[in-house]
Amino acid sequence: MDFPNIRFDMIWEYKELFLHGLWVTLSLTALGYLGGIILGLILGMGKLSKRKWIFYPCKYYVDFFRGTPLLVQILLIHTALIPTIFGHSLGYFVSGVTALMLNCGAYNAEIIRAGIQSIEKGQMEAARSLGMPHSLAMKTIILPQAFRRMVPPLGNELIALLKDSSLVTVIAANDLLYAGKVVSGAYFRFWEPYITVAILYLLLTFICTKIIAYVENRFSNSYVPSSRRKIFSFGRSA
C-alpha cells in the first residue's frame, strides 16, 4: 500500500472554514437541543394525558419523527415545508435547526415521559391530597425528581444529536462536515480533511461527555448535599 504523504498544512490554510464549521455545528446542536427539550417536555406530558385529543396527536408526532430518517426530514423541511409556508427558503440554518429540533423533540418526549412515569405514584397522590392542582404538583414535586432520572438518557440524546447534525450538509449548510467536503473537493485529497473533521467531532463529543458527567454527578443518588450527609439517624430525637 502506498501510504499517502500527509499534508496537514492545507488544513491550516482552511482553518477559518473549519472554525466556522465548528461554530455552525455547535449552534445547530445547541439550538436544536434546547428546542428539543422544550418540545419534548410538551410532547412527553401530552403522551401522559388521559385526554384522547391530546394523547393521539402527540403519539403520532413521536411515531412519525422516530420512524422516519432524519435525512429525509431535513430534506422535507428545507425543500418542501418551509418554502410552502413562507414562499421561499429561509436558509439552511433555519431549516437545519427546525429539523433537528423537531427530531430531537420526539426522542426527548419518550425520555421525559418515561422519567415522569418512573416516579412513585404516591408522590403525586401526596401532593394532590395536600390540595395541589395537577399542574402545580407536576411542577414542584414530580418534575424535579424525574429530571434526575432523565439526565443520563438526555445526555445520550445530546451526543447523538451533535453527530446527527452533520446530516444538514445535504442542504449545503456550512457545518463542520461541509468544511471537510470543501477542502477535499479543492485538493482531491481525502485523508486530511475527513480525519480533521472526525477529530473535531470527537473533541466536541468529549466535551459534551464531560459536561454530562458533571451534571450527572451533581444530581446523583442522594438529595442530601454530600458534606452534610449522615446515613440515617435512627431512634427518636428529643
Binding site: 404516591g122 408522590q123 395536600l130 390540595g131 395541589m132 402545580l136 414542584t140 424535579p144 425528581q145
Partner: peptide
C-alpha cells in the same frame, strides 16, 4: 382533608421544613 399514607410519601428532594411549607405556600 389531610391524608397520611402507609408509605409516608414525603417529597425526597425537599428538606423536612420545605416538605411541610410547600403546600401552605403554593396552595
Amino acid at each position: 382533608v389531610g391524608m397520611v399514607f402507609q408509605q409516608f410519601n414525603l417529597f425526597p428532594h425537599m428538606k423536612v421544613l420545605d416538605n411541610i411549607t410547600v403546600s401552605p405556600r403554593k396552595v
